[in-house]
């Protein structure tokens, strides 16, 4: 009797084990937690935006969506982790357009085409800032002084990133030159500005906001097409006659070659997260716009951004391909 019970138990366990071992068909996907790789340290814009949408995706997918921070080499290491991952949809990447910059400046050898782009997600603005004691109150002031003293004023920028590209574009549109000092990280650049070690820099609006509200920095311009909802009083660069733009726009990527139904499931879960009114409210609290784009729209967007950056890289001699 006991022998029979044991046999049955063993058989049942074996079947269960097999069922778990064989990767579930797409019909059952997901059967285990999904990892979202953030190629940066916890606490930054990438991390915070991802932690918010992860909670909403969990609801529609019925599996935990786990945030894993793999930082290093300006995002390259995290990107590579997903690039080389098994294409089963359990490891995906949340990265902004620095992905193109890393490729164009020779840091990586993969483009967005080596991934399966799921969708463009949130975006936030960047601003040009100066210290509170700076004589400059508009971009026109900067142009006037910088023309008088070429290569004189210290401009800090984050080398090899979207920030680098945006700043180069801005200076070339202004037709001025400055002493370009590389410094990664918004907060180190703000610190530098407060300490008087740099004259002007560009950072994410979110990073600048507390210092703007406290009066420690002045914001000279928003680097987007339209004025920011959170800074209606500050004109854009374009309004001030400088045709330059710098956006932090996040994209969700999966490895190349994931099954098309898994791709579709990921996209619809991401869409329902991004379009939920509660998420939109949470994003607004951190000055981020939840701008979900459909498949074709995403591909068009990535193509146009990539082509724009490629032209800039060639123009400024930082094209290393």
């Amino acid at each position: 009797m006991t022998k029979r019970v044991m046999t049955i138990t063993v058989a049942v366990l074996t079947v269960l084990l097999l069922a778990l071992a064989v990767p579930g068909g797409a019909a059952t996907w997901p059967v285990k937690p999904i990892e979202v790789i953030i190629p940066y340290a916890p606490g930054g814009g990438s991390d915070v935006t991802a932690r918010i949408f992860a909670r909403y995706m969990e609801k529609s997918l019925g599996q935990p969506v786990v945030i894993v921070n793999i930082e290093g080499a300006q995002g390259k290491i995290g990107e590579m982790e997903v690039l080389n991952a098994r294409p089963d949809g359990y490891k995906i990447l949340w990265q902004h357009h620095v992905l193109h910059c890393l490729y164009l400046t020779g840091v990586t050898n993969h483009t967005w085409k080596d991934f399966t782009p799921i969708a463009v997600g949130g975006k936030s603005d960047n601003v040009v800032i100066v210290g509170k004691n700076s004589p400059w109150n508009s971009m026109a002031d900067v142009v006037r002084d910088a023309k008088a003293k070429p290569e004189h004023f210290v401009m800090e920028f984050a080398p090899g990133t979207t920030n680098h590209f945006g700043v180069l574009q801005m200076l070339s549109e202004m037709n001025v030159t400055m002493n370009m000092v590389p410094k990664s990280g918004d907060n180190p650049r703000i610190t530098s500005l407060l300490g008087g070690h740099c004259d002007i820099t560009a950072v994410a609006m979110n990073s600048a906001m507390p210092f703007y509200k406290s009066g420690d920095v002045k914001i000279l311009g928003v680097m987007s097409k339209d004025r920011s909802k959170w800074l209606p009083e500050v004109p854009t660069l374009m309004e001030q006659g400088i045709n330059a733009e710098l956006l932090n726009e996040y994209v969700l990527y999966a490895p190349k070659g994931i099954p098309s139904d898994v791709e579709a499931k990921l996209r619809s879960a991401f869409k329902s997260a991004m379009t939920s009114p509660e998420l939109i409210k949470e994003y607004e609290a951190i000055a981020t716009v939840a701008n979900f784009m459909d498949k074709q729209e995403t591909i068009d967007r990535l193509t146009s951004i990539f082509n724009g950056y490629e032209a800039l890289a060639k123009q400024f001699g930082i094209y290393r391909k």
């Binding site: 340290a41 915070v48 932690r51 507390p210 609290a285």
Partner: peptide, 13 residues
């Protein structure tokens, strides 16, 4: 990072 996740904006203010 925890500050931000709790909706508290760390900063000069």
């Amino acid at each position: 990072g925890a500050f931000m996740l709790h909706g508290i904006q760390p900063g000069p203010l």
